[in-house]
Amino acid sequence: MLVLTGAFAMVFFYAPLDADQGFVQKIFYVHVPMAIVALIGFVGGGICAVMYLRTRETKWDMRSYVSIHLSVVLAVGVLITGSIWARASWGQWWVWDEPMLVSFLIVFLLYATYWPLRFSLEDREKQARYASVFAIVAGAFVPLNFAAVRMAEAYIHPATGATVAGGLPPKMGLTFAVAMLGMGLLFLTLVKYEMASKHATFRLRALRRKLAGDDDDLMLTGRSAAPQL
């Protein structure tokens, strides 16, 4: 939070105004790091899913689940801030023939089906296995999002670190780097926070069942989208 607060202070007091977009370009420092971290989180969820399928250790399924969960939360923010930026820059809340917007929306909608998929499977092992396959396939799809932007020519979507002039000016670049670092650290902190919360919940329930004398059934029963440790 400290790094992110510092980054936002740099956005308004250190980074210069953009020559084309002016003050509206400040949205870039929250929108783009959020988008990049969300997409990395989706890919990370896929990598954790690969690890689950290789080892069959539930902790990897949990990491994949939490990573995707947080990435979807960030993706909601990306779509809203992106719409606000589009309204300020293009005069429209949404542009359907802009590949970055549409492909990100597709990625978001794709991952929105992750919870219904998990919830539809009662068998825990099958749930983890199917969800892992989904996370891997969807995670592999995510880089297409970046490729789509690079190939797009209809509109010029602000591309990070690769402008026509050869990159961001140093002050903007530094501010963006700090914002990226802050967003990445925030993501990792929230992942650890949620993981700790889920671990504590499952351990407590298991302990309660054990104390109640139900020694043989320490696992939770009932349907849930969340993985079980």
Partner: peptide, 18 residues
């Protein structure tokens, strides 16, 4: 792309995003 918005106009969009 539209021309850059004046600060008082752009400010509300930036504030909304943050």
């Amino acid at each position: 792309m539209l021309p850059a918005l004046p600060l008082d106009e752009a400010g509300k969009y930036v504030a909304a995003a943050y």
